[in-house]
């Protein structure tokens, strides 16, 4: 059974732009899929539907659960979204509190949530920085902290929106190594072909709010001439 199943998803922004125009998509357990497409082709809008932040027409199931209001709490613990701007994801005064935010929202007692947070921070190699404030971190550290914040909820799926933005090459390498070792199914929204090659076994290409093609990363890159030069 796929962990993400999307059928006929359509969405029009309140301002009137048709952002999604019939998306069908499956993600299998353990699979890592790259999502390519031009700016404004609907990639981020698509991702925001997966945990119910946006609500369009069509059907979405996460681990067999339809994405409807009654299921949102359960769905948000199964699917972890890591946003493009880590500053927006890290909003609590210290790292440990920030990473414990998710588990506390799941109703865990503080000690247990703190233990989970600590484990997640150790998992991303930041176990020594528990009491640091987020704005003292480097971009790479912020990105890993944001991932820890999601891992602490023990999700089955990770969705990363432009994860390599503002990371230096060593930071990108570390992130790729970290993600490769995580067992979750992954969806990578990215322009970074190198990064996608390193991780994804399959790619889809968004065009005007629908998936125009899918195949291996190499096939998609060749077909749409999707390299910087």
């Amino acid at each position: 059974m796929p962990v993400i199943r999307v059928r006929g998803l359509r969405y029009r922004y309140p301002e009137g732009a048709q952002a999604l125009n019939g998306v069908d998509f499956d993600l299998e357990p353990g699979e890592c899929v790259a999502v390519f497409g031009a700016n404004g082709s609907g990639k981020t809008t698509f991702v925001l539907h997966l945990n119910g932040l946006l609500e369009g027409e069509g059907s979405i199931e996460i681990c067999g659960l339809p994405v409807i209001k009654q299921n949102l709490a359960r769905i948000r613990r199964k699917i972890g979204l890591i946003f493009q701007d880590s500053d927006e994801q890290l909003f609590l005064p210290t790292l440990i509190e920030d990473v414990a935010f998710g588990p506390m929202n799941l109703g865990m007692p503080p000690e247990q949530a703190a233990a989970r947070a600590q484990k997640a921070l150790e998992r991303v190699g930041m176990g020594a920085l528990l009491n640091r404030t987020p704005y003292h971190l480097s971009s790479g550290e912020k990105r890993r902290a944001a991932i820890a914040g999601v891992l602490a909820m023990e999700p089955e799926i990770l969705v990363l929106d432009e994860p390599t933005t503002s990371l230096d090459p060593p930071g990108q390498r570390e992130l790729a190594d970290l993600l490769r070792d995580l067992p979750q199914a992954k969806l990578l929204v990215t322009h970074d072909v190198f990064f996608a090659r390193a991780l994804a076994s399959r790619a889809v290409f968004f065009e005007r709010g629908r998936i125009a093609a899918e195949g291996t990363v190499e096939e998609i890159v060749a077909r749409f001439n999707w390299t910087p030069r």
Partner: peptide, 23 residues
């Protein structure tokens, strides 16, 4: 715009209106 981004990130991690506090 950033404020709405932060709010979305909070919702994505199960925020339900209550801010929990550690020990």
């Amino acid at each position: 715009a950033r404020a709405s981004g932060i709010y979305q990130a909070m919702l994505a991690r199960g925020f339900s209106g209550q801010f929990p506090a550690l020990a």
